[in-house]
């Protein structure tokens, strides 16, 4: 296991190194000593961007993992099951009501709406028969799409379409120093979930087992949902919706290393971060000097992996 932590950490460090030196402005390793401008560029743009991708990817993967435990279904994740869209709705509403609102207020309200929409999703899932496991992600996608349509509707009415396109398709090109720091809060949230990792693993075994082991089921679920909503809201506020990371990463890790979250959550976070950072780097390089948003790259890669998972695991996924 420790071996894998090292491997994950190394991959992440390697990608971060590349990320620092890839971009429109040419930058080589040697410039660090020769050119003071180079350091400024790294401080203002490259470093924040790299950190943002690492945090967003890592925390989203953790959030997806926790959500899969809470819902007891492997094919859900916050960004496609209404949580991310709920956050976007919250930001939109704040922007319309009080355009001058601070980013902190926007984030708080986005977290609240994200929590409300995730509670709604959970309430729907509760009514579904356990014999149809694929119905859950299906309902999630439609539910998320519906809230997304509501966001578009409101945006049209308020003439804010260009705003929401930023939130609905995540990208890191706008990340600069001073504009991404909220993400550290998401990182803190994800780190806190690690302390409750055992509890989420137990909740993943169902309400009866949870109660029998002396845990308050509803309380654990609520704590998990709050963490998910916070992470989603912070990500949407700063970089927009990043799809599929939270879905495919926990699935792959679970396949390889099982569901003992205390052991696997760090791997989930590292792989989520690597996938997102790698996709961002790819998006920067493919059509150099133009950029392809990370949401688009992951839309392609993630959907393809999702389909593969869907057919690899016939039923009791």
């Amino acid at each position: 296991m420790t071996r894998w932590y090292w491997a994950g950490g190394f991959a992440l460090a390697f990608l971060s190194f590349i990320s620092i030196f890839v971009g429109v402005i040419d930058l080589s390793f040697g410039d660090l000593w020769r050119d003071p401008e180079a350091l400024r560029l790294i401080g203002i743009s490259r470093f924040p961007r790299t950190i943002a991708a690492v945090i967003a990817g890592g925390t989203l993967a953790v959030a997806g993992c926790v959500m899969q435990m809470l819902v007891r279904n492997r094919f859900v994740e916050p960004m496609t099951a209404g949580t991310g869209q709920g956050a976007a709705l919250g930001i939109l509403v704040v922007t319309i009501l009080t355009p001058q609102a601070s980013i902190f207020l926007k984030m708080s309200l986005a977290s609240v709406t994200a929590l409300v929409t995730s509670l709604g999703f959970l309430a729907i899932v509760r009514r579904l028969p356990p014999t149809q496991p694929l119905l859950v992600p299906l309902i999630g996608l439609v539910y998320g799409g519906l809230i997304g349509a509501a966001v578009v509707f409101v945006a049209y009415q308020a003439d804010l379409l260009q705003f929401i396109s930023v939130w609905l398709n995540g990208e890191f090109s706008g990340v600069l120093r001073g504009r991404y720091e909220l993400l550290w809060l998401a990182a803190a949230g994800a780190a806190l979930t690690y302390f409750a990792a055992d509890q989420f693993a137990i909740v993943g075994m169902g309400q009866a087992v949870t109660t029998s082991l002396g845990l308050n089921y509803k309380q654990v679920v609520l704590v998990g949902l709050i963490a998910i909503s916070l992470i989603s809201a912070l990500t949407v506020v700063t970089v927009g919706i990043i799809p599929f990371v939270g879905l495919v990463v926990p699935n792959i890790i679970s396949r390889l290393f099982g569901d003992n979250l205390r052991r696997t959550l760090p791997l989930v976070a590292m792989m989520g971060a690597s996938l997102t950072l790698g996709s961002d780097i790819a998006g920067r390089l493919i059509r150099f000097p133009f950029e392809v948003p990370v949401g688009t790259v992951l839309g392609v890669v993630g959907a393809a992996i999702f389909l593969w998972l869907l057919y690899r695991t016939p039923r009791y996924a």
Binding site: L134, L138, P243, G299, V300, A303, A304, L307
Partner: peptide, 11 residues
């Protein structure tokens, strides 16, 4: 099948 269709659409 439906799930596949929706994900294919997204893809």
């Amino acid at each position: 099948m439906i799930l596949t269709g929706i994900v294919l659409g997204a893809l």
